[in-house]
Amino acid sequence: MNLRQYMPWIVGAALIALPFVYRDPYHLHILILILIWSFAYTSWAVMGRFGLVSLGHGGFMGVGAYVTVLLWNHLGLSPWLGIPAALLCAGALALVVAYPCFRFRITGHYFALVTLALSGIVLQVITATRNYTGGSLGYTPERTKGNHILALQFDDKVVWYLIALGVWAGGLVIWHWIDRSMSRYAMEAISEDEDAAAAAGVNVTAEKLRITVISALMTALAGALYGQYQMFISPDTVSGIGISLQMVFAAVVGGIYVALGPTVGAIITILLAEALRIGFGTKAVGWDNLVYGVLLVVFIIFLPKGILGSLLASIKTPSKRQNG
């Protein structure tokens, strides 16, 4: 084992030790947000890296957050059971939408727009059932009077930091697991040429479905965690087209072809938003998205591999930098 193989463990240990050494609540809050969103962006990139551009992930995230909180508030079901139920819903939704898409070869633009309809539906359903979900005004999980662990509600930021860290690391493990599996080669073949992949014996529909469901489940988990941590969800913060696009562009800015790319994207976008908010106060409304938007366009034109992707590519093959 050399230093490179030890690196993840050293960094991991440092990240676990961090809140015990340094516990400024504001900075921990930012770190938790970065970790949760990194996990969500990683989930998107799990399928996005294979050219399956989904604009429906806002929908999966909304399902994850709302189903968990609704079960808790109306049925008193602990999030420990509510989150699996929410994941089941999101997975079923992914299957129902994705299976016919893949079966009938809906790809590229069409796939992006069908999934766009999905996130639109989830947003409108949440708004329309306002008697249960609070509509566009948002929704708050009821504070528990009993066991905090059972209700998955913690006042201590350190606990949330460790949970978010664990889930984020889990997301990276899933990424590596896919990266080393046969699925990855199958999916890369599919993204190059579906017919050729099918002719070579790849079950195109099954492979794409597997990746899509994994990605949807992860996204729903991110939504549920976000709801539990923030103790407030609204259609605009966890679902809809805005969130779907936010996921896509953070992942693209960071780089969707490398494991830590979406994390870099989350760090950049969240720190940028916070810096603008602190720097300009209420005058910053709109400026953060303006900067994001320009960044996204510039990145797609000049650095389609994202910041981290381009950086790694230029370290590996400095002479071919202009090709990246």
Binding site: L245, F249, G286, W287, D288, N289, L290, Y292, G293, V294, L295, L296, V297, I300
Partner: peptide, 8 residues
């Protein structure tokens, strides 16, 4: 991205 730019 242009959507974000125009909106903001």
């Amino acid at each position: 991205g242009v959507l974000f730019v125009l909106q903001s």
